[in-house]
């Protein structure tokens, strides 16, 4: 929540925060799926109600258009799963495995 509040404050004071993606407009919340234990703290703290875990556990960028890039989920994750990453402009969410017998994708550990 602190990240969100600071973000709001920075909007009013006009101070650019170079740690957050709004400053450069090309960053998204990225995830290391192998660190995620699916506890859901990320989504629990999301001010706009995104179930961040669904992205985090798959190691995907949070491409939900509702994301306001406040960074609260990054700040609250106890395991370092989330961080700022370069934005993926074309989300890969729809690229599904078409072959049901494709080998299982393992978490990279």
């Amino acid at each position: 929540m602190i990240g969100f509040v600071e973000k709001l404050q920075s909007l009013f004071t006009g101070e650019a925060d170079n740690q957050t993606p709004m400053a450069n407009g090309l960053r998204q919340v990225a995830a290391d799926g192998s660190r995620c234990v699916q506890c859901g703290i990320c989504g629990y703290n999301c001010p706009v109600g995104i179930e961040v875990r669904e992205y985090a556990r798959r190691g995907r960028h949070v491409t939900d258009p509702r994301c306001i890039s406040c960074g609260t989920c990054i700040e609250k994750c106890p395991r370092g799963t989330l961080r700022w990453g370069d934005a993926i402009l074309i989300p890969d969410d729809n690229i599904l495995e078409v072959n049901p017998d494709a080998l299982p994708v393992l978490l990279r550990i």
């Binding site: 699916q38 506890c39 859901g40 703290i41 629990y44 875990r53 556990r57 106890p78």
Partner: peptide, 10 residues
């Protein structure tokens, strides 16, 4: 106290 019980459902 950082998360609710039902939020733990994955």
């Amino acid at each position: 106290g950082q998360v609710s019980d039902t939020q733990l459902y994955t």
